[in-house]
């Protein structure tokens, strides 16, 4: 597979973690990704959010989303680091490139369909008007 894979990695840090700690974590994770030949597309800080259920007796957590591109080798190291970090309560890795491609296909299909329906309607209207005209005469 020469194709680049795209992953979304999200982690929940302790609610007590301040901005400095979060950026430190992000920095180390970024370095780990780049050391394995991957690249970070974006890092999104969602800030503090209420958890839908308790994790480690906490009701809140700091959410951070990282989108990265790479071969897939960097994930193992990334996950190991997150598992070791005691500031991180939970994380998830989702591969998104294939799903996005599939979504793109559907979008194209829908657009085509919409265009076809539009064309049929235009044709119907045109036909209706041409049919009306001889009657009027």
């Amino acid at each position: 597979m020469s194709n680049k894979r795209v992953y979304e990695v999200m982690y929940i840090a302790l609610p007590e973690a301040d901005d400095e700690e979060i950026s430190k974590i992000n920095e180390t994770l970024k370095k780990a990704i780049e050391a394995q030949g991957g690249s970070v597309v974006k890092i999104e800080d969602w800030g503090k959010r209420k958890l839908a259920y308790e994790i480690k007796h906490k009701h809140e957590g700091r959410y951070v989303l990282i989108e990265l591109e790479g071969s897939g080798k960097e994930i193992a190291e990334l996950e190991r680091r997150m598992r070791v970090n005691d500031k991180i309560m939970r994380f998830i890795t989702v591969r998104v490139d294939e799903d996005r491609k599939a979504a793109e296909k559907i979008r194209a299909k829908r657009q085509k369909r919409r265009a076809r329906i539009g064309a049929v309607k235009v044709a119907e209207v045109a036909q209706a008007t041409t049919e009306e005209q001889p009657q009027e005469e």
């Binding site: 999200m10 929940i12 839908a52 259920y53 957590g61 939970r90 998830i92």
Partner: peptide, 11 residues
């Protein structure tokens, strides 16, 4: 199911 893992939605 993914959102549940990340406590975005409840189980």
């Amino acid at each position: 199911k993914r959102a549940r893992i990340m406590a975005l939605l409840p189980f």
